[in-house]
Design a binder for these strands. Sequence first.
DNA 1: GATATATACTTGAGTAGTCAAATACTAATC
DNA 2: GATTAGTATTTGACTACTCAAGTATATATC
Lengths: 141, 141
Amino acid sequence: METLSTSVRFFMEMAKVQAKVSRRFDNGLGGLGFTEFIMLSHLSEAGSPGIRRIDLAEKVGLTASGITRLLLPMEKIGLVKKEINKDDARSSLVMIAPGGKRKLEEGLERAELLADEIIPSGKKGKIRELSSFLTETGKRI
Amino acid sequence: METLSTSVRFFMEMAKVQAKVSRRFDNGLGGLGFTEFIMLSHLSEAGSPGIRRIDLAEKVGLTASGITRLLLPMEKIGLVKKEINKDDARSSLVMIAPGGKRKLEEGLERAELLADEIIPSGKKGKIRELSSFLTETGKRI
DNA sequence: GATATATACTTGAGTAGTCAAATACTAATC
DNA sequence: GATTAGTATTTGACTACTCAAGTATATATC
């Protein structure tokens, strides 16, 4: 009965570490939640004229509904803004706003510090390897 | 500005994969949430007379408060039960109940199937390596 | 060009957590 | 044996999501 496979144990371990990481980042990014930080990063990378909510959802790993819910307060405080999508009236585009750029920049600095506290400097190669493994894994879910 | 370090990217990737994994497991464990499944696994391993909430919190990576909140409905439906702690009246012990054992057994089967769908069979060595890296990482948070 | 099907998004209702403060005890010190 | 400081848990108030269903638009087919 006590025979958890390596794979299941791995997912349990990841859940644990992720819980702790997100708590740490939620409290250390200067008023930006970890998920908000991630969303802003993707939006910043996307640039102008922004991206569709559903593509943002895909990048972040959340549902479209979750993205809607999260964007609402972010728009209200000027982190992001809506743009009309001429090509498809079903979807409006989301774009990072000036306030979001500022917050992201600040959050980014703090995120790097936090990450350095957690990951020993010698482990960068391992991290890279692990990242690409996770990317492959994500595709299978 | 678009210069995210490897480490920060890693944490973003893990957040994404974890979000997808927990959604998948939440919906595929036969009425057991992924976190509930994890909690029951640890409780099952702990055996009798149970463990303190704070130790369970530590194992799972959540706060004591979160554990209290999660245990309440689990106790109500007979997955776990409270035991008195003679040594320290501040804390009562939590123990897996017969209903929890049944649910865990069923969830475990499904969890193994899900994990096998996600992790290619050739990757077990990699998974093991990755798990222990995550364990080390968790200790630094 | 009407009808059916699929896609993008939002909304209602609910769950799963968080933090900070309160409670109830234990342990240490004087 | 009082007082102080520390630990385990719960609670109030809140945030961050989830799913299922609803709305609006686009695309395909006949």
